[in-house]
Design a protein around this nucleic acid. Sequence first.
DNA 1: TGGCCGTACTG
DNA 2: CAGTAC
DNA 3: GCCA
Length: 900
Amino acid sequence: MASSPSVYHQGKHNPFTQRFRKIDAIRTALRTAVAEELAQQTEERRRETHRVNAENKRRSATAAAAALDGKTDSSGIFPGRDSDGYGSEVSISVPCRLGCDGTASRTRSAGSSGGRAVSRPRDRLVELLSTAACVKQASASPDKAFGWRVDSGDGPEGEQEGASGVASTCGGRRDGHDRGPTPPPAAASVSTESQSVLASAGAKGGGAKTGVRFLEDILRLGPKGSRSNDAGGALPNPKRKSHPRRGGCKGEASRTQTHKKPRQGTGAVSGPFSGLSLCVVHLGSVTNNTIKTFKRGVCDGGGHVSMRFTPGDTTHIVADASLAASWEKLDNYFSGWGGVDDLDDAVNGGRVGLKSGMMPEGVPIVSNEWLSECLRRSVVVATDAYRLIPPPHRSAPVAASSAAAARQQQRSSTPDNQSIAAGGGILPAAAAAAAAAAGHIGLASSTRLTAARNEVRGGSTQGTAGQSTVAADLESMAVKGGFGARNPDVGKKRHTFHCQSTTNSRGHAVNSEAADMLEDLAKLCAVRGGDGSVFKERGFKNAAGVLKRLGVQITNIQQLKDLRKHEPQRVRGLGDSVMKELATFYEEGRMYRLDELEADPKLKCLKIFQEVGWVGAVKAQQLYDQGIRSIEDLRTKGLHLLSEQAQICLNRHEDITQRMPRSEAAEIEAVVTRVAQSICPGACGSYRRGKSHCGDVDVLIRPPEGQEDSPVFDDLIKRLVETGFITDKLTLAGSPHKPGKSQSFMGICKLPGKGRLHRRVDIKFYPTSLFAFAVLYFTGSSHFNRSMRSFAKIKGLKLSDKGLCRVNTVNGEEVHRFPSYSCLREEDVFTALGLEWREPKDRDGVQVQAFCSKGEGGATELSGRVVPVTLEQEQQHQALLEQDRLEASDYEDAELQQQE
DNA sequence: TGGCCGTACTG
DNA sequence: CAGTAC
DNA sequence: GCCA
């Protein structure tokens, strides 16, 4: 192979292959010694972890007990990971959910005959849950298309089949095939029928019947619908009963499309945004894409978004923040003279009911950031801080700064600490820059605000990297602790805390418009497939993340160019291609490449196809080549081209592409967990909940300690199939149970009762020894996982959900794998890798792994003894961490390393 | 120019 | 092994 | 697509 030449080079410009080889060499040399030590270390570690773990459990038990007493505010929001598919979700830890575990155990011991009560079930669950909480809910496809047809593909046979067929390893699938092409008109009635079938708890098929009964027992589905019980205190709208569907956009869309599902409920949407009727101004950085995003989010929450201003109906006008500084633009927009864009809708809509110079009275005009904030938090936040105060004929700058001031004031008084407050401070910069660019502001004020921006950035105009420390960095340092005093100046001035940031948790929507478009671009790249498409996707996505986290609102391509020149670290990930797109974005408001791709009808098809599970880029292309152009086509003439799984997913397509409210995810989790407990008392399903809506539910199951070998999983799946809960199986891995091994089920389920949709569910079993790895893995983000694994790799370790092992490799090929480190908690994995612990909320999104490899220079706990880490390796590691959150300390470190 | 996470099922 | 998924 |  072409491997030989590189072996001889050792410079720092070596490609990664050499790195690995070199590491191999080092490792080989050290292997013997290391292996011994590793064994010892492992043993030590195990003892210690056990000790610590025991302690931890005591701690968490008490903590959880507190939670049970109602002090559940520890249910922090974890901005979730981006799943490998598209989309991101937010997870929430759910101590509050514990309350119903008590119920669960009671239910079990009372209801099920097999319910040998565990000594103190509640405490036990509390323990287990708190050490290992984790239901992940992935958002399957964020912008799934609306179903073309809203027939739920589940006929009565479907139910039967689900009840019995799946058990026979989906032998009933052929029914599915036959049923697939069912003409839509028939499907409508079928679907109604199926409702009634369900309503009567399974008229056909005794198995299904008892199944439903059983589930009802478990769920305590009384006439009163005790599901609110499951929902727990954290769930926002307990009054939504068995109709999980939200209205909003989707409803709207489907309404126009022969929506005949009776389950649509009675309109009255009760989402966080119900009652909101927003008029979005298509100006400035609020692009089509932004509007789309807003629309989706708000509509999901029960609100309404339009570009049309309707007097009497519109509750808020949402406009780009920079318009506060160039008010006449907005004015013109509404008066119809703005010559805005050709956007028919926008202009036409905007003109309605408004005359020149007449700003709608009484309707608050707020910045788009308000909306972003609302969407992020899933609540309607106060508009005060986001008002774009309209002083049409006064000096615009005043408007801008007073708005900013109001923002700062308001925000700093919220309990949301600096990270939120940070959002306010950056705005003046944005406004100033925008205004300056637009030339609408007098010079004096412009400079004033520019000065403010510089202050905000905490340094002199050309401040050194160290001085340009932004508040976010402070925050992140605070998280790590110990760096607070590094730059005292920063701490003194309040506004220095206002920088936006690189920080995740409630990452503010800086540059979100550009970022959104880049993300769209990323998706389209992925859809198109072909060579390297996944990497292109990643590249664009990464760039989007970099922009979002940049901390400053970019309004002008030059800013980025300057950054690239002077602080390249901050914009690492923005390469030539992305810059090119961004240039046109900032100059003309669009990205040609995106426009091009979005206009491509073929890509639309491919995208639609890929929304069906188990249809990827390759299969989609094949389908297209076969002349298939729609899901209809797929159903009628393309079935034979699809894999078994894809066919199943296609059958349930309309259901499983609907996102579900998280309360429903909780219900699903509850069923799985409780059934698991009825089989194996003490077995613990744990979970992290997704945000308001999510695409699927993952339930991780683990056995009670000391009963590692109880075959919970196989029985569990069997039982769930028997009860009709699981309707389809997609894949089943690792069955039958083998001691010490994990098992996994992927499939489709449906809660009993009327009007339920089929949902994607993954159920996974991990033995205690692997559970921490599984939690780590499922907590994500995917980026975080990748980077953590990369990190492990350059240390000669291999990390996966199956453990953390030292491996010997030859030419990159694994030749030997040592037993896994024993890590009973996530923390242990970090420690074993020599990484600082990171909260799940800090692992989100693109930015992933800013774990602190810095400073330690290999001086981590293990590095000196077990893991040979050279400085060079560390440097190479730095290179690998493309997605680094660029913390100030990291800059400094990088600089140090470069100097050395 | 080569590398970009690790694992598992399905066909 | 390729494709797909998590 | 980005990076070394």
